[in-house]
Every structure is written in C-alpha cells, then in structure tokens.
Amino acid sequence: MSGVTLRGWLLDAAPASRRQARFGRWYRTWLSFQNNSLAVAGLLIVLALVLSAIGAPLIADPQAAILQHLAQRLQPGSAAHWFGTDELGRDIFARIVFGSRITLTIVALVSAIVVPVGLGIGLPAGYFGGVVDAVLMRLTDIFLAFPRLVLALAFAAALGPGIENAVIAIALTAWPPYARLARAETLTRRNAEFVQAAVLQGASPISILFRQIVPLCLPSVVIRLTLDMAGIIITAAGLGFLGLGAQPPAPEWGAMVASGRQVLLDQWWVATIPGIAIFITSVGFNLLGDGLRDVADARSS
C-alpha cells in the first residue's frame, strides 16, 4: 500500500470497519500531536530513555559502570570516558545509561501501584455515590493532604533504604489524584445511555466499571500519569540523593549527584551530569504530558 492510499484509508470519513475507525482515530490524534514540536521533543526524550534502558549493554560497557578503577578516578570527559569518571574511577556515561534502568523501573512500579489503587478507590466512589463515595473521598482527601517527600522519608526510615521502599513510599502519596480523576470520569459517565443499556442487559456493576467505564477513563489517567512522571522521578532522585533510594553501587542518578557533592568544586562534572540526566528526563515527561493533554483538550472541545 503506498503512503497516499494508506493515509487516505486512515483519514476515510466513512470507515468500513471498527478497525479502520480505530486506526483512523489514532492517526488523527497523532497528526494533531505531531504539530506540537515541543511535545514531539518530549516524546523523543522519553523514547531515548526507554531505548537506553532496554539496550543499555549495547550502548555502554556494564563493567565500566560498576567496576572501580582507582587509577582513573575523577577524570574529565575524554574520548574514552565521554562524561569523565567518578570518585571510584567508574565511567559516568555508562552509569548514566544503566541508571536509566533504575529510573524507568521506579516509574513503572509506581504507575503499577498508583493506577490500580486510584481506580479501585475512585471508580466505586463515583459509581455508587452516597456513603461509599463520602468515605472513600474522605480517605483520599486525607492522603492528599500528606507531605509526600516527608512521608516517604519516614517510610524509608522504618523500612530501611532501597528502591522497593522508595517506590512504596512514593506510591502511597501519589495515588489520591488518580482516585479523584477516576471518580470524576465515572460521575460524568455513570448515567450515559450506553451504561444504562449495559445495566438493562443485566451487566453487573463490576463488569460495567471494567468494560464500559475504565476504557474511557484511561486516556485521562495516562495523561495525568505522564505529567506525574516528572514529579515521581524528581522525588525518587531526591530520596536517592538522601541515600534512601537505590543503594550503592547501583548507578542511581540522585545518589550519583550526592557522591559528586564531595568533589563539586574541583570535579564539577561528577555531580552535574547525573543532575542533567534527571532534568532532561523530567522535562521530557512534562513536555510529552503537556502535548498529550493539549491533544485531549482539543478533541473534547
């Protein structure tokens, strides 16, 4: 199929099949998304992060990221070590590349907790209303009023430092907005005709929530999640910086900044470069999230 006819097929105003309609909708969304060059830049950054996490061993030498090489410690950037070496002679470039795995793991784990919990609280609250709603939303409000980093700190103090505990601590304070979002989306759809139709067909509340309402909530959840990623990454890096995230010798970016702190004045790159990695990654997620939201807003208005 040539590009022109594929495009024509996708943009067909009268799609012949559901599949064509769905692909057509995706293509149109993509068209409006790619008009926003900042959003595309965000997408590229996020893709680069994902690719470097997947292909880390192909991009950099895993040994160089972990093995100490005291003879070569604190070297500035060179052909052999693009970003220089740290205080133990490890290659900073390799550590950044492998660090993307840690960042991505944290982000993925937090999402995997936050979305089900948020939906699990928000959907019934919106669907059943009444007492259920009041209780669940009060609970959400309480958690919404918690200081995120401080609570994460307390958690890490009780559980001991480590990625898993950092993830739990972040997730614990990150879910309330999703519950609110899911509740709001459910409220607007609860009385929609297609939901009424499903009720009349005898569908159970669970099946209605999962088959009718969840799919419609997902776009806004995904957008919110993308926008939250930056905050999650920064909080995780903050915990790492305090020594409460991934433990050495894992190449966690926040911990790398902390270790570069001692040599900041003379070997500035050791602390600066991991910080730039954190910054660029969160800019990427922010740009992507903004772009997705703009597309969604344009579609709904």
Binding site: I234, A237, G238, F241, G254, V257, F279, V283, N286
Partner: peptide, 21 residues
C-alpha cells in the same frame, strides 16, 4: 517548565558552585 523539572538538590549544588565558589 524548567522550574518544575529541576531536581532542587542539584540546582542547589550548581548554585553553590556558581554563585558561591
């Protein structure tokens, strides 16, 4: 955008490096 994408501890270090040191 830069403000809410910036890790504060890193910005602090850069600030110290630049404006103090």
């Amino acid at each position: 955008l830069f403000g809410y994408s910036m890790p504060v501890f890193w910005l602090g270090l850069i600030g110290l490096l630049l404006f103090y040191a």
